[in-house]
Structures are given as C-alpha cells and as structure tokens.
Design a protein around this nucleic acid. Sequence first.
RNA 1: AGAGAGGUGUCCGAGUGGUUGAAGGAGCACGCCUGGAAAGCGUGUAUACCCCUAAAGGGUAUCGAGGGUUCGAAUCCCUUCCUCUCUGCCA
Length: 425
Amino acid sequence: MLQVNFIRENFEKAVLGLKKRNFTEAEAVLSQLVQLDDTRKNIQLERDQLQAESNSISKTIGKLMQSGQKEEAEKVKSRTSEIKAQVKILEDQYTQQENDLTQLLYTIPNIPHESVPAGFGADENEVVLTHGDIPELSAEFKSPHWELIKKYDIIDFELGVKIAGAGFPVYKGKGARLQRGLVNFFLDEATKAGYMEVQPPILVNEESGYGTGQLPDKEGQMYFCTEDGLYLIPTAEVPITNLYRNEILQADQLPVKNVGFTPCFRREAGSWGAHVRGLNRLHQFDKVEIVHISRPDKSYEALEQMSGYVQGLLQKLELPYRVLRLCGGDMGFTSALTYDMEVFSAAQERWLEVSSVSNFETYQTTRLKLRFKDEDKKTVLAHTLNGSALALPRIVASILENNQQEGGIKMPAVLVPYLGFEWIS
RNA sequence: AGAGAGGUGUCCGAGUGGUUGAAGGAGCACGCCUGGAAAGCGUGUAUACCCCUAAAGGGUAUCGAGGGUUCGAAUCCCUUCCUCUCUGCCA
C-alpha cells in the first residue's frame, strides 16, 4: 500500500498517476486519506499526552509507596481514574481511525511510474520491442497444441478431470519430461545469473497474502484450506517475498536475488472460452519465479536486468517474443511498472503472455515492513520486484506449436541435454 | 494428536508488580592505545508512530501475538501462535 506521508508530499503527482490507471476518484480519496491521517495524529497527540501524565503519576505513586507514604499515594490515585477513562476513549478512537485509514489505503492501487502509458486495456499497452521471426506454418503442420498433445499423447486433460477437475492436466511420458527439463533449465540459468534458489512452502498463511497484496480482495482467486486457514499460492512471489517480511536487511545484503520453482494455483473464476483452451489457462501450473529486493535507487536498473534475463531465456528457447510496457489500466494493482513478455504461438496465431516482470517499489514493502539500513544507518523501505522466468504451460504450448514439422516436434537445442530426446514423435 | 517445558534486544542470558527500553556478557561501530594486530580502556549500538525541529531534544507504544487485572505488568490472569522434550502417528 501507499504511504500517507508520500501522498502528503506528492499529492498532485499521486493524483495524476492514479488517474493514468483510471482511478478516477483519486483526488477525493487521497484528500480523505490525508484528512483521516490528520485526525489520527490529533488523537494520538492527545492520547499520548494523557498517557504521559498518567505514567508520571504512577511513578509518583511508586515512590510514595516505597517510602511508606500510603495515604499520600491513595490521594494521588483518584486523579488517575479520570485520565484512564479518557485514554480508553481516545484509544478506541485511535484504533478506529487507524483501521479506517488502512481500509482506505487497501483500495488505492500503486502509483504508476512516469513511463507508464495511460490507457484502459490490453490494446493500449506499448510494444517496446519484438524479437525473432514469426514462424509461418504450412497448412499441413498447423495444429494447435491441444491437438498435438493428443496426437503424441503427452498431456491428458481428461485424466486430470478424473483426478481433480478441469484445468488440472496430467503430463505423461515426454510431456512430463519436457516439464521437468524446462524447470531444470530455468533454475540452472537463474543460478548462473546469480540467483539463489529457494524452495518455499506452497501454502501460505493470511499474513503472507496481505504482505504481497493478494489480500484483501483477491481471496476469490486463491484456493483456501478452511481447516487450517492456509491459501494455496497463486505464484511463488507470495512465499518468496514474504521470506523477508518484517526484516531489516544490511545494505550489503542487497540486492537480494532469489529464484524458486513452485506449482501455482489459480481459481480463475469465470474466465472460460475459446482463448483459454488447452494449456492457455489452468488451475494448476508450474512456474519458476525470480524475486529481487533492491535499494530504491537501483530498482529500475534491476527491472531492466530482469527483463533482459527473461528475454535471454526466450532467445535460448528460440521463441519469437515481444515485450510490452503495460498501460495504466492493464497493470496489476500493486505494480508501478510492468513488462509483459509474450511469445507468438504459431498455430493459434496469438501472442501468449509467458512472463510479467514488475517493480512494486515500496507498495509491498510498506505492508511487509521490509527495510534495509543504508550507509547513513537510516532504516529505509526497500523495493521489491518479481517476474516469471518462466511460466511453463504457454511456453510448452508455443514450443509444441512452433516446432511441429514432418517427423514430429523438434525440441529447442538448449533443452535436449535436459530432455534426453530431440523429437516428440 | 496426548503430557510436560519454554518463548526477553543482533546473539547468549538475567529479571515474578514500582524511574526496566529492559542487568550482565558476546558481537558490531567509532575513538584511544599499537610499527601493525590482538589484548586493554572509553563511547555508542532496537523498531514504529507522534510533537518540536536548522540541529538538538521530547512523548507514546513494543519483552511471541491479542485481550484482561492494577495507579503501575517483561513480571499476575485468559485466549492464541510457535519452539523444544517424551509418547502416538507417519513420508
């Protein structure tokens, strides 16, 4: 969430930024926010003063008791009951005010970076660059991946339905091997690039959900284990970033660069149709995620670095891709700047999002209380960033579609050592 | 899951109602000392919010978390989470 003090000091900028993401009532909400905070401060001031008086009386009583002046002490006591009642009232008001403030802050998305284009939806995203040639498939070999997986019997949706339900595919034979190979390839690449691998839990508690911004509001997107109060993670971002919740890092620990492989679970209520066939949208899928924790003055450098890293993976996989700078309306609630990487899937003839790389600046760290000590020994909120590197299903879909030919599907050369085969046939 | 023990600052560790944000030690930082280092000596070493700010200074809260008793709680009571030991179960 945003910091009230930042809004106070950058009111106009904040309003303009939020309008860019179509948060039309920005001005009114931000004014209300500042007002709530003003009231909060006033209450705090009054409460603290009364409390201070009460504390000082208590000390006096303590001294009197020690020196045996019991009656004197009793006299002083009577004064405190009045203060106590007052403090209680103010305390309740303060809590109420603080809750209102937090609730309101939860409704305000992150302020977009100045480079973020205004816009309402996917059409207005800015294409930053396109890489690689769009493959032209012959009519003979132009099957969408959902036909290819049947033909070669490598992924079975019906079987998944039997075990769990729609959107839980079963990978078989070379399909399973392809999954495992990709995961290993991604983890190895990340390690080479200086990321530390972590294996986090894939169930998280409520606090973690709040830390990275999935909660409140998006609980509908997550599977929830009511018995234990735990959520299945929608992305490894949640557990990995929360590893650092409530921490104060030393300056020389930054940047933190973690990579983790986890399955991801999404309920994805209500989005079914032609575009979500096959592997395009699933309830469970595998993803390798990279997370950075960065100094504020280095976070955009880190974002570019991450974007470059992800592009490198796509290049090694020989997949044509483009990079989008998301417009205000299409960006996630918590992000300040997001690059989407889309791969062209040649049979569907569509760009498929395979990665989303974002800088959250302090939006997450405010909630996470994730800070570091800078050179002046001042405690400062860090910036968090993350990106998929990469999400498997659509990568699999595009590898299958783009490389189909006479004799089967040819695997990208870089994967062959991981797979132990060159062809799916 | 059952029984017991316990959760204190970066770490170890004292503290069972009264100037305790918290003894003592270690670590760390700075200074002195040294040719250099160690030892030694001295100083400092939490977080959040608020007031006042040029700086300094001050207030409130925080001893796992939440609530209660009390003029006053790290210390007493309740709830809850976690850790350890034993038993049970189990990959």
